Computed example of a mutant assay.
Amino acid sequence: MGHELEQVGPRLRAIRRARGFTLDDVAARAGMSTSTLSRLESGKRQASLELLLPVTRHLGIRIDDLLPSETRDPRVRRPAVRRDGITIAPLTPEESAIRTYKITYPPVDTLPELRVHDGYEWLYVLSGKLRLRLGEQDLVLTRGEAAEFDTRVPHAMSPVGKSPAEVLSIFNGEGERMHTHGSD
């Protein structure tokens, strides 16, 4: 239980603000000092039932509403994005620290520009053949092959031949921004 309680304060603050109440409003009605409520919200004061009950009653919520739900739907329902013909399907929730995507590279006549950005990328070829240009290297990865590289090295990827290449790609936050938001 201890770990889940860490989220209680921030959730309480978010609900109070969403309802348009000030710290003073809620503290007065819950029969506690404003500083106690403030410390409860910032996590400096351990959340206990006797502190939470009058506050949740005033906000019209249940204590359960402050605890993370274990029964959250685990499925990732984020739409795929298309950029320059490339389809990028997110496989992890948005708040995930490590971002995983299934990327489909369509056949191209001209090779894409080499790009550089902060971060790391790990990739695994699901189908087709992928040409990976990385600095001076020009490699062809086939189904079942994986690669990991520092994205500060100039790099570009494209399929080999007439069929698309499907790739599982994992980035840390920096690398991901580049791929999904372009170089804006």
Rank of each mutant, 00 (worst) to 15 (best):
residue 44 K to E: 15
residue 72 R to F: 01
residue 51 L to K: 03
residue 2 G to A: 15
residue 87 T to P: 02
residue 109 D to A: 15
residue 40 L to C: 01
residue 77 R to M: 09
residue 177 R to F: 03
residue 142 T to P: 00
residue 147 A to D: 03
residue 130 L to D: 01
residue 178 M to S: 14
residue 107 P to H: 10
residue 33 S to G: 14
residue 9 G to P: 06
residue 12 L to S: 07
residue 132 L to C: 01
residue 92 T to W: 01
residue 62 R to T: 15
residue 75 R to V: 08
residue 17 R to G: 12
residue 16 R to S: 04
residue 116 V to S: 12
residue 86 I to E: 00
residue 83 R to V: 11
residue 117 H to F: 03
residue 125 V to H: 05
residue 90 P to F: 08
residue 133 R to A: 00
residue 148 E to R: 13
residue 96 S to F: 03
residue 179 H to K: 04
residue 7 Q to S: 13
residue 65 D to A: 12
residue 107 P to I: 10
residue 175 G to D: 03
residue 41 E to D: 03
residue 1 M to L: 11
residue 134 L to S: 07
residue 184 D to N: 12
residue 45 R to I: 05
residue 1 M to C: 08
residue 24 D to R: 15
residue 173 G to Q: 14
residue 55 V to P: 05
residue 92 T to N: 08
residue 98 I to G: 03
residue 167 V to D: 09
residue 70 E to N: 11
residue 1 M to H: 08
residue 78 R to F: 02
residue 9 G to D: 04
residue 109 D to W: 02
residue 36 T to H: 03
residue 41 E to A: 01
residue 89 A to T: 13
residue 145 E to N: 10
residue 105 Y to V: 04
residue 99 R to G: 12
residue 94 E to V: 07
residue 101 Y to H: 12
residue 6 E to D: 12
residue 53 L to E: 12
residue 27 A to I: 02
residue 75 R to N: 09
residue 161 G to R: 12
residue 93 P to M: 05
residue 142 T to W: 00
residue 183 S to L: 11
residue 153 V to N: 08
residue 110 T to M: 11
residue 172 N to F: 00
residue 121 E to W: 00
residue 3 H to W: 08
residue 158 S to A: 15
residue 63 I to E: 07
residue 111 L to P: 14
residue 107 P to R: 14
residue 73 D to L: 03
residue 40 L to R: 04
residue 149 F to C: 09
residue 101 Y to W: 10
residue 159 P to T: 09
residue 140 V to Q: 09
residue 115 R to Q: 13
residue 14 A to M: 06
residue 155 H to V: 04
residue 37 L to K: 10
residue 165 A to W: 08
residue 145 E to H: 12
residue 113 E to F: 07
residue 159 P to Q: 11
residue 1 M to K: 07
residue 50 E to T: 13
residue 58 H to P: 00
residue 175 G to V: 07
residue 103 I to N: 05
residue 77 R to P: 01
residue 6 E to V: 06
residue 139 L to V: 00
residue 45 R to K: 13
residue 147 A to M: 10
residue 170 I to T: 15
residue 184 D to S: 14
residue 101 Y to L: 13
residue 141 L to V: 01
residue 47 A to L: 01
residue 177 R to L: 09
residue 131 R to N: 11
residue 178 M to A: 15
residue 124 Y to A: 10
residue 90 P to G: 09
residue 171 F to Q: 06
residue 134 L to F: 09
residue 143 R to V: 08
residue 145 E to F: 03
residue 98 I to E: 06
residue 46 Q to R: 15
residue 22 T to N: 06
residue 125 V to C: 06
residue 82 R to V: 13
residue 107 P to N: 11
residue 130 L to P: 04
residue 166 E to Q: 12
residue 31 G to R: 10
residue 178 M to V: 01
residue 94 E to Y: 06
residue 5 L to E: 10
residue 164 P to R: 10
residue 63 I to V: 15
residue 145 E to L: 05
residue 73 D to P: 02
